[in-house]
């Protein structure tokens, strides 16, 4: 993380980074050069911390959703979270001057995500039961519905607005500010801990609903609790960082292939790997094309997909199916 803070449009030596961070955290040591201090403490540090939180949040959310809907293709956006958030964000970007009745892009995206998930929950349940297939198909349908509205708004947008929209949709942590971090940190850490506590029950879901019931699990209640928790973390993350793709799909599989499918280990490890991965990708996004920045969504897939495919070919247990 220190390396990630030190490198960027302006490179700051590592010892200076440590000095500045130490100064701010403990109050000890001498304040450095004001410009460097500004870069390190006000821009880079929150950005790197946010990248780590976003990566961790997307990774655990992906792990949980893959287990809950029993589908290896599931990712944090399978229930329409991203299309809801996109609609919220695009509404604010194209129809207003950046705020809508005091609501910024982040809040609008969060509200859109909540609306989409709520709709999917209502449509995906029957008699209070959430069946995986109905849930996924409802998510896809609601996703297309929101996408239609988003596309229409994009067609009417000015080129400048369109660029903002594109950049938002592909995701970025460039706008990270200290005042966002407490909420995001709280949500990501508490949901990671809470979901890890459900690790044993998540394991049991893997053997099918009826067998999980015979193991003493209230499958329908468990599924609802897990979906609410994972939607909360996805909605929060997408609100501050946009629609970063691929992390939530790939990191869970990557960690599962290397450490096994026990959720009690899988969840914390996926959070850690997701955090590291997104910090690295963010670092690349602002160094490859210096001083310009690339959206994270492009790079997560560009580097992740080939590595994932290599891992997939190397794994022998997949040969049998």
């Amino acid at each position: 993380m220190t390396v990630a803070i030190s490198i960027g449009a302006v490179t700051v030596p590592l010892d200076q980074v440590w000095g500045i961070v130490w100064h701010h955290v403990s109050g000890a040591g001498a304040p450095g050069d004001p410009v460097t201090d500004q870069i390190v403490w006000n821009f880079r540090t929150p950005r790197v911390v946010l990248a780590a939180l976003v990566g961790a949040g997307l990774a655990i959310s992906g792990v949980v959703l893959q287990a809950v809907v029993a589908n290896p293709l599931a990712d944090p956006y399978v229930l329409g979270v991203s299309s809801g958030a996109s609609l919220g964000a695009v509404l604010v970007i194209t129809l207003t001057t950046g705020t809508l009745g005091g609501i910024g892009v982040s809040s609008a995206a969060f509200l859109g995500a909540v609306a989409a998930v709520a709709l999917v929950f209502v449509l995906g349940q029957k008699g209070g039961r959430l069946a995986p297939t109905r849930l996924v198909l409802s998510g896809v349908a609601v996703g297309y519905l929101f996408l239609a509205a988003t596309s229409y708004l994009q067609l009417r947008a000015t080129p400048t607005e369109l660029r903002t929209v594109m950049f938002w949709m592909l995701g970025s942590v460039a706008g990270a500010k200290w005042d966002q971090l407490p909420i995001v940190t709280t949500v990501v850490l508490t949901t990671t801990v809470a979901l890890t506590l459900f690790g044993r029950q998540l394991n049991a879901l893997l053997v099918g609903d009826e067998s999980a019931t015979s193991l003493g699990i209230d499958v329908h209640r468990l599924r609802a609790v897990l979906l609410v928790l994972s939607s909360l973390v996805t909605g929060t993350v997408i609100a501050v960082a946009g629609g970063i793709g691929f992390v939530g799909l790939m990191i869970p599989h990557l960690v599962r292939l290397t450490t096994g499918a026990d959720h009690r280990r899988l969840l914390p490890q996926a959070a850690l790997v997701g955090a590291i991965y997104l910090v690295v990708v963010d670092l690349l996004s602002r160094t490859l094309d210096r001083p310009n920045e690339l959206p994270l969504g492009i790079l997560t897939a560009l580097f992740g997909a080939p590595f994932f495919l290599w891992l997939l070919r190397r794994n022998k247990s997949l040969d049998t199916i």
């Binding site: 290896p72 893997l206 053997v207 099918g208 067998s211 015979s214 599962r256 096994g260 247990s317």
Partner: peptide, 13 residues
Amino acid sequence: AVLQDAGGGPTGV
């Protein structure tokens, strides 16, 4: 219970 839905499962288990 040992049931008929219990086969298969994901890899890595």
